[in-house]
Design a protein around this nucleic acid. Sequence first.
DNA 1: CGGAGAAACTTGACACTGACTAGATTACCC
DNA 2: GGGTAATCTAGTCAGTGTCAAGTTTCTCCG
Lengths: 192, 192
Amino acid sequence: MSTNASYHHGNLPRTIISAALDAIAESGPSALSLRDLARQAGVSHAAPAHHFGDRAGLLTAVAVQGFGLLADALAEAQRQTGDFLEVGVAYVDFAVGHPAHFAVMFRPELYRADDPELIAAKARAGESLYRGAAPFAASESGADSQEAALAAWSLVHGFATLWLSGNLPAGLPADPGQAARGLASALFSGRG
Amino acid sequence: MSTNASYHHGNLPRTIISAALDAIAESGPSALSLRDLARQAGVSHAAPAHHFGDRAGLLTAVAVQGFGLLADALAEAQRQTGDFLEVGVAYVDFAVGHPAHFAVMFRPELYRADDPELIAAKARAGESLYRGAAPFAASESGADSQEAALAAWSLVHGFATLWLSGNLPAGLPADPGQAARGLASALFSGRG
DNA sequence: CGGAGAAACTTGACACTGACTAGATTACCC
DNA sequence: GGGTAATCTAGTCAGTGTCAAGTTTCTCCG
């Protein structure tokens, strides 16, 4: 928090990640420049590498944070509504609300996929997702429940991806969560 | 076709694109190096730029080709089966069969989205997709037909994306198209 | 209090990249 | 055959990630 220029920045990792999120949200992970982040933070060009090792290390930290936030968001939606449909909406809302995280999380080639923290955070998010889909899956008597959960995941993931990449046609509701709710309810109506 | 080393390569654009597809399929579009492609083709480092302008130009060509192939694949599935479900399966099959194209097509920040050829190819693919989803949309009396088509698109796109990025859990059918067929039929069974 | 050791950061260098310019070579066509 | 356009080469520039070594500051223990 010290604003005066000292040798030690004090909170470099957090600052770097925050700047990285802004940059990624604006131009994607590919265009991310560690040197640019360092400049923004007012430190030397090699400072980020000291904390994150390398580019992949920084993006690993972003992905870990992202999976953690996603797990929280899904669990919260599940707790509040108990409705599997709303868990799906929460998934889309997360993607739209945290575009930078989302842009990194599902591209393992960008980060260190074998990082222990990453694996843990990912597992936690997976659990939240599965727990959210469970009510629907249970109602799917006959059909494979895991298959139903996977279908729901594919639907919201696909919609979020297409939305974020700007590939959806115009004329949709301004709020993507609302649009997703419409899609999902149209698809799942009268079942369960 | 001349194999002897002449000043003119003869078919550089095709060769470059082909090498680019291999490289993208292996390490993603971000890791693509124009200089490396030039080396593989046995030409100088600046030769690719002459044909494609720059990196974005090359990826634009890849995207155009990709949307063309997708349009063909969807139209073919629609023609042969007339089943909207099989059009969705064809979408997944295309993604898995042309991972490099697919990895570029839906990331407009990588290429020149305002390129006329690109816009045309994309429109053609969109039409094929919409035509494929039409039977299903029509059966959705009451529900917005465009909404139904969008839901179907989201489902297959999400599944393909998750599959390609290696984010799906183990235990699925080895053939992604088959897995997608299962998902979609489970979701759409008894409707229409 | 003070000094050792660890942590945070800087400086400098290297190999690599995409992009640009100017020039050399070749194909094409009247 | 000669002129013109297309193709490709060669050289250069600014920018990047990564590494190694040095400097500054913090922390904590005696």
